[in-house]
């Protein structure tokens, strides 16, 4: 059956073409977004190594100043666990475990929000001033980027979960993991992209934790 939309009639073939293009967009858009974010975080990593190697006035990291380790561990563990849960959730989702995915997703969201609160709290408890050294400046930069990253991640996870909850009604009670309804197909593509991004966030958190707390 053809569908009238905005003054034109789409044939079933065209509907299918549009759907495939849309799913492809969600898929490639998710990966491109990761690429974009990689360049953003790479700018921070470049800054870290540039200031470290420049060591202007021997002020890269006087007295090996380090941000509070307890906060660092808390943030990285919460973020990494959220990433693992997102990956696990998708693994279960693909096998039809929608409830497992939802539980994993909401837990991941709680962990991300926890990490966000810890990150903000940490910035108020630093044992150095923002301009005390190259390290201190880079760390503040990381704090700001990490807050943004955690907000973006939490938003993506939350909107996906919320969409998943409403989807079942929309697709007539079918399971979103199996349904051929266009909304369900689009949703699955979004879940996959979100999971990739969460994996990326987890790796990024571990990388910068190593840079700022361990090295």
């Amino acid at each position: 059956m053809a569908k009238v939309e905005q003054g034109y009639i789409s044939t079933p073939e065209e509907e299918e073409f549009e759907l495939r293009a849309h799913i492809g967009s969600v898929w490639s858009g998710g990966r491109l977004f990761i690429g974009m974010y990689t360049f953003l975080l790479a700018s921070l990593a470049y800054t870290y190594f540039y200031l470290r190697s420049s060591n202007s006035g021997n002020l890269w990291r006087p007295n090996h100043m380090t941000a509070p380790m307890s906060f660092g561990w808390g943030i990285v563990l919460a973020t990494a666990l959220a990433a693992v849960l997102a990956v696990y959730g998708q693994w279960r989702f693909r096998r039809g475990g929608v409830a497992d995915w939802q539980v994993a997703g909401w837990t991941a969201l709680a962990l991300l929000l926890g990490a966000l609160m810890l990150q903000i709290w940490e910035l108020t408890k630093l044992p150095f001033y923002p301009g005390a050294s190259g390290y201190a400046s880079s760390f503040i930069g990381w704090g700001v980027f990490n807050i943004a990253t955690l907000i973006v991640s939490a938003y993506w996870v939350e909107t996906t979960l919320a969409r998943g909850m409403r989807l079942r009604t929309e697709i007539g009670g079918d399971r979103p993991t199996l349904s051929t309804h266009p909304s369900a197909q689009s949703f699955r593509a979004n879940v996959a992209s979100m999971t990739y991004f969460m994996g990326f966030v987890g790796v990024g958190a571990a990388f910068f934790f190593a840079l700022f707390y361990l090295i």
């Binding site: 005390a132 190259g134 400046s137 880079s138």
Partner: peptide, 20 residues
Amino acid sequence: LDKTAQTAFYVNEHGGSAYL
């Protein structure tokens, strides 16, 4: 951040670098 939070990304005298 240099302007508002008083970091020193681009301030040589505080461990930053104008070349950055």
